[in-house]
Amino acid sequence: MHTLNALESFIATWLVHNKDALPGIEFDPQWPSLCYRDQNLKSGDMTSWQPQKQTSPSDIFTRLGAALETDIHPDITAYYTSYWSNHLSAVAPAGDLVLLQVWNEEDMERLRANLIGHCVTKIKQKQPLSLFFACTEPDDGILTLRNDDGTIWLEYPGKKPVKQIADNLPAFLSQLKPR
């Protein structure tokens, strides 16, 4: 299974799980997104949101790879460039987590900056390059994709990877349940 298929499958399950009560968010015209279910609101009005497929490809991972002087693993590229969404709560066999997502183009640029910072730390610590995509709850761990082989790892900021969680991102996403 490919990352896009696994992510689409999880999002479809997440939407069914939340069909009676999509999550709410304050509308912010300065933070636009296709995810807002109602676009005709005033600032601060509550509205629901849901993930929306991205229609134009982002070059964020080409630019990220250029900044880091390496190719970025295609699984993480597919993961972040397929949908616009707020973060998605999920349950994995090992516990609760939040899948990090991007809300709009500006959020994509913030993600790029944060990924660069994470990768620079990894390089300084002489650890394998990894890219984060989820946070564990309640222990503040991060789930990362190791860039050289696509394996999924549990890490804690500033420390060596703790434990391999899955062989690849599609396998990991396939085991999740919405929360």
Rank of each mutant, 00 (worst) to 15 (best):
M46N: 12
T62K: 13
T81Y: 09
L7S: 07
I11W: 03
L154N: 01
I72V: 12
Q127V: 01
R112P: 00
P51R: 07
D38L: 12
E155T: 08
L4W: 06
L173E: 03
A134Y: 04
T13M: 11
H87E: 05
M1A: 15
F133E: 01
Q125R: 14
D148T: 06
R146N: 06
L15P: 09
L173W: 02
D45F: 10
N114G: 14
L131T: 06
L4G: 05
G24C: 12
L34W: 02
Y36D: 09
G141A: 09
T55L: 14
V102Q: 07
D75A: 15
L115H: 02
V91P: 03
T3E: 00
V16E: 15
C119S: 14
S82H: 10
N104H: 13
L173P: 02
Q175C: 06
K122F: 00
A12D: 15
Q52C: 09
I116Q: 04
L131Q: 06
G117W: 01
N104P: 09
V16N: 14
V120C: 02
F10K: 03
C35R: 04
A166C: 09
C35W: 06
Y83P: 03
P29A: 15
Q175R: 14
D38G: 07
G65R: 08
V120A: 03
K19R: 15
L7F: 15
M1C: 11
Y80M: 00
L68N: 05
E137C: 07
V91Y: 06
V162I: 07
G24V: 15
P51M: 07
I60Q: 11
L129K: 10
L41C: 11
V120F: 03
L4C: 12
F132T: 03
L99V: 05
H118W: 03
R146V: 05
I165Q: 07
G44D: 05
I152Q: 03
Q164P: 02
E105L: 08
A134R: 02
I116E: 03
K126V: 10
F132Q: 05
T3M: 10
W84D: 03
L176G: 01
D28T: 04
T70K: 03
V120H: 03
Y36N: 08
S43W: 13
G95W: 04
W103K: 12
G158R: 00
L145W: 03
E155S: 08
A94K: 08
F133A: 05
K163A: 12
S56M: 12
K163I: 09
L64N: 00
N104R: 11
Q127E: 15
D139R: 13
K177W: 01
W153D: 04
G141Q: 00
V91L: 14
S82R: 07
S48W: 11
F61H: 10
I76C: 04
Q127M: 12
L15H: 11
P32C: 15
K159N: 11
S130Y: 06
T136I: 09
K126T: 12
V162N: 08
K124G: 00
P157E: 13
P128S: 13
I116F: 07
E106V: 10
Q127T: 07
K177C: 01
L143R: 10
I60Y: 10
H17T: 11
G65H: 06
A113I: 05
P161Y: 00
R179E: 05
L7G: 06
L22M: 09
H87F: 10
K124I: 00
A6M: 10
